[in-house]
Simulated scan of single mutants.
Amino acid sequence: MSFLQILSDIIGWTYFAAWSISFYPQIYENWKLKNVNGLSVDYVGLNITGYICLCIYSTAGYLDQSLEVGTIHPEDLAFAYHGLLCTIIIIGQMIFYPLGDNKLSIYIIAVLVFLWTLTPIYFLLTQTFDVFHVSVSYNAYRMIGYDKLLISFIKYIPQVYWNYKRKKTLGWNIWVSLLDITGGLLSVLQTIMDQFIQDVNNEINPVKFALGLLTIGFDSILIFQHYFLYPPKKETQVMDYVTMKDNGIDDI
């Protein structure tokens, strides 16, 4: 194994750790506040579909390299399933904790219905049947990967808007974005490094590369909102929270 390959593996598992850990501050934040009103329901609704797509895309590409979806590392596969599990946990929190006026918008419902309708139809139309097995075109798996890209592009917008609407980021744990942007930077770096390693498929993984860039871009906006547009005022936030709880108001 070459030095570049070892370095790529180290970077890959580091990005896996950063992206995976990024889920837990929000899970803890929801548990601490016993309230999920700081986290956009639209964001989570898109996230669950996105991670289902990423699991299918990564599993197919990892098990069958002839699909030509680019290099899929074990850590890519591990991250996809870990992200799906954490999103399911957050959905569970949304079921048990108050949402306030936070709800799934009609626009996001339309996007989800469109994706959950179009993708299965495309899968059926691209299947090749014979007596012994069913073969699915690699374009179908690529479409699922592009579904994940579309969702990732859309999913951050509700959270950015939710922060803007409330003029605060209380309830959104900033460590989510700090760890997320770290994982995005490392993911992009590993994807670029893979192109210089001779013993792997030189075709770039377009979904992984674009996901990294999208993550960097939107997390930069969220970080800017937190530290510059709506800087946290701890004393005021704690007072507001205690006052609202005393008055029986869960929407913070």
Rank of each mutant, 00 (worst) to 15 (best):
D9S: 13
T14S: 15
Y15V: 03
F16G: 00
W19R: 03
F23D: 01
Y24E: 00
I27T: 10
W31K: 12
W31V: 09
N37H: 08
G50A: 11
C53S: 10
C53M: 10
T59A: 13
L63K: 08
L63P: 05
S66G: 13
L77C: 08
F79W: 12
T87Y: 01
I88P: 11
I89R: 10
I89N: 09
G92M: 10
Y97C: 03
Y97G: 01
P98T: 11
N102V: 04
I108D: 00
L115M: 11
T119Q: 11
Y122S: 07
T126R: 02
T128E: 15
T128Q: 15
S135H: 14
S135D: 15
A140H: 09
A140N: 07
Y141G: 05
I144W: 12
G145Y: 06
L150R: 06
F153V: 12
F153E: 05
Y156S: 06
P158V: 09
Q159R: 13
V160C: 14
W162M: 14
R166A: 08
R166E: 07
N173A: 13
L178P: 00
I181N: 01
G184D: 08
L185S: 13
L189C: 13
I192P: 08
I197M: 08
Q198P: 00
N201S: 10
N205K: 08
P206E: 08
K208H: 07
F209E: 04
L211Y: 08
L213D: 01
L213M: 14
F218I: 04
L222S: 02
L229V: 11
L229D: 06
Y230L: 09
Q237C: 04
V242N: 03
V242K: 09
N247Y: 01
I252M: 14
